[in-house]
Every structure is written in structure tokens, then in C-alpha cells.
Design a protein around this nucleic acid. Structure first.
Lengths: 119, 119
DNA sequence: ACCAGATATTGACCTCTGTCAATATCGATC
DNA sequence: GATCGATATTGACAGAGGTCAATATCTGGT
């Protein structure tokens, strides 16, 4: 159920403690969370995220995603890598195609972290 | 109670509809939300946000904030402006001092928008 | 083995952004 | 109204980031 500390995503390790309202984030905590926010703080990547999340079965093939944008294939691949490296997306290769899906846990932790401030 | 459309923050205008899971964000919606995420997607600004949120009465004087960082005063001022321009912070000048407070509504909308993906 | 299609990587370019020093502005007090 | 302290603005610089063309890598079918 609960993972070892070493398996925690950066955001999990911070979100587990307390929302941002209660106690100021340490510099270290801030440096862990910021990259995840940076990953989704881009119009293209936000759309990628919502496209994948709202897609059939919660996963989407890169081929589908490419068509949704007026951008080159390498650029989309680059953005997907950003999201993957940040832990926001998971990927699975099936044959020739690569499928991405949203890592709900990572986003959930972000929401938990920000939720404290929100209300 | 409910504001005119013209008074809505960028995020409100998007979050009012449906979380990112249900339907893909339009390019326009993504361009409205991304800047707000960009504003908080920085270690210094994250700490500023949580410092202000967790401060006495939910507001903090710039003088307090400057001391919490190893950065020049103009740099902190710059970051506060970023957060203010994004609608994440409110500001009030009282005498010589300027007080910032977190705009809970704006952050709440963000959380609502991302919350759909999270669970 | 070869080829064709799907995705990733590299390298280059230009823009955007975080930072500081210097300076400006504003408000209170003497 | 001159001065001082608090905050903001400007200009400059270095580094990060988004984009593309070209190329590489992988996989399935012929």
C-alpha cells in the first residue's frame, strides 16, 4: 500500500507532510515540486495532458496526439518526454506504437499540495 | 455572488466548465491557464506563496519576505509581480509597507481544473 | 535481409526568464 | 521640503526552453 521512501515521486515526498498553507515550504521542497509544475505549465503540454486524460481508456497513442497539433513530430515527442520525466505521464510501448497515460497519483499530490492554499 | 464574465480570472473562465479529464482543453483555454501555472512553477515563487499563505492573517509584508531569501530585493519584487500579474496574489499598500495575500479563488480554480485528472 | 512507418534524439536557432546593480518612486517623519 | 527607508522599475547578462530539420532507432511485414 504505502511505498518505500525511495519510491516516492518528488511531489509525494512533499505532499505527504502538509499543504502549503500550514507551513512554508523549505527551499529543498520547493525545488522538488517546481519541476513538476513547470512540466504542466505550458499550453501544448496542458493540452497533451487533457487529451490523454480524456481519451478512450485514459491512454492515447502518440500518433493520435501528433495530429491534434500544428507542431512537428519531434516537438510533440519533446513535450511528452518533459511530462514523462516529470512523472506526470506513464508510457508503454505496444508494437510500433507508444501509449501514454496520466499518472493520477502525481497530479493528485500536486492538487493536495495546492489544495491547502486554495481554501 | 456570481461575477460577470468580464471579471473572471483566466482560470475561472476555464475551470467553470469541466475538469481536464472530461474534455480536452481547447488551444485557447490552454493559453489562458498555462501562465498561471507558469507563475507558480518556480521554486522561489512557490516558497513566496507558501510563506504568504502560512503567515499571520494570511498576509505578509514584503519586508518579511525579502529576509527569507538569499536574493536581492529587486528579484523578490520581480517574483511577487509575476504572481500578482497572474492573479495568484493580491496586494495592498498600507503606509510604507506593501502586503501580499494569496488569492484563494484563483488557486482553487486551478485545483478544480487539475482535480479532474487526479482521481 | 530489406523496407516502411512510428517514435526518439541531436544540433541549431531564437525567445523567454531569473538575477543583479543602478536608479526611480512613494510615504512618513523631522 | 529635505531626508530616509520601503518597494518598484530599468537595463544588462547568462542560462533555460520551445521549435524545427535532419537523423537515428526500433518494429512489423514483405
Amino acid at each position: 500500500m504505502s511505498k518505500s521512501v525511495l519510491e516516492l515521486t518528488p511531489v509525494e515526498a512533499v505532499a505527504c507532510c502538509s499543504p502549503v498553507t500550514r507551513e512554508p515550504l523549505s527551499a529543498e521542497q520547493a525545488h522538488q515540486v517546481a519541476p513538476v509544475l513547470k512540466a504542466i505549465a505550458d499550453p501544448v503540454r496542458l493540452r497533451l495532458l487533457s487529451l490523454i486524460a480524456s481519451h478512450q481508456d485514459g491512454e492515447a497513442c502518440v500518433c493520435d496526439l501528433n495530429d491534434a497539433f500544428d507542431l512537428s513530430q519531434p516537438t510533440i515527442s519533446h513535450h511528452l518526454k518533459q511530462l514523462f520525466d516529470a512523472g506526470v505521464l506513464g508510457r508503454e510501448k505496444r508494437g510500433v506504437w507508444v501509449y501514454y497515460r496520466v499518472n493520477s497519483a502525481a497530479l493528485g499530490d500536486l492538487v493536495a499540495l495546492l489544495g491547502g492554499v486554495a481554501r
